[in-house]
């Protein structure tokens, strides 16, 4: 399983993501700068978190209109797995690869803490290491994580099982509709989530709850090196 981490100017969680992919997958991902001419042939493309283009206009809006996103869209249509975390999720919704939008947190505050997630659909490549209904810990750090979609879109993603993770046990930190923390596209090969599983993958992080997302995609290799 080959993976790539795509970096836009202003992203800052790329190194955490590279470390997680290497420690869990056994081989380091290719790191691709958004201006690079080519995106190598990989099985998994990851867009990490941060503040692309300073979140000017709307979070993720400018990165979403870059030529690199056209390439990622083409790969996604061919079935390549795409994972967007935090700003990566915002970029994927702005680019139209995922439905809905991430608005300013209802509290208007940047929230950096740990929440509980429950697995709403364990039958995806991103969540298959977890059990349906399982609750696990995950850190969050964002200002614009308030997921919103119109009633028709919401019904369709709920009916299709596209909601993969929900904030559990009254930990919804941002006002997201239906407690939505992570969703896939209709085909199920693109996942966006606001929480940061890459920051809870080894004992030094205080837990390993986030490993399952990467282990499911990359195949489990237990290295703590």
């Amino acid at each position: 399983m080959k993976s790539a981490v795509v970096v836009f100017p202003g992203l800052n969680r790329d190194r955490d993501m590279v470390t997680a992919l290497e420690k869990i997958g056994g081989t380091p991902p290719v790191v691709v700068w958004h201006k690079d001419a080519e995106l190598p042939d990989v099985d998994l493309i990851v867009i990490p978190g941060g503040f692309s283009y300073g979140d000017y206009l709307r979070a993720g809006a400018i990165a979403a209109r870059s030529p690199m996103m056209d390439t990622i869209r083409e790969r996604a249509e061919k079935g390549v797995h795409v994972l967007g975390v935090c700003n990566g999720f915002q970029i994927l919704t702005e680019a139209g690869l995922l439905p809905g939008v991430l608005m300013r947190n209802a509290s208007l505050k940047f929230v950096c803490k740990e929440v509980k997630l429950s697995v709403a659909n364990a039958n995806t490549p991103f969540s298959k290491e977890y059990a349906s209904g399982q609750v696990f810990r995950c850190p969050i750090a964002h200002h614009d994580g308030n997921y919103f979609a119109d009633a028709e879109t919401l019904k369709s993603i709920e009916d299709n099982g596209q909601v993969v993770f929900r904030y559990a046990e009254d930990t919804n930190p941002n006002g997201s509709i239906n407690d939505i923390a992570g969703i896939t596209n209709a085909k199920g090969n693109v996942l966006g989530m606001m929480p940061h599983p890459e920051n809870l993958i080894e004992p030094a992080h205080g837990g390993e709850d986030g490993r399952g997302i990467f282990a499911g995609l990359l195949g489990p290799v237990n290295t703590y090196g």
Binding site: L57, R58, A61, I62, R65, G100, V101, F148, A149
Partner: peptide, 9 residues
């Protein structure tokens, strides 16, 4: 339609 507004919201 392309950039200035997000027509979802």
């Amino acid at each position: 339609e392309k950039l200035l507004a997000n027509t979802v919201i």
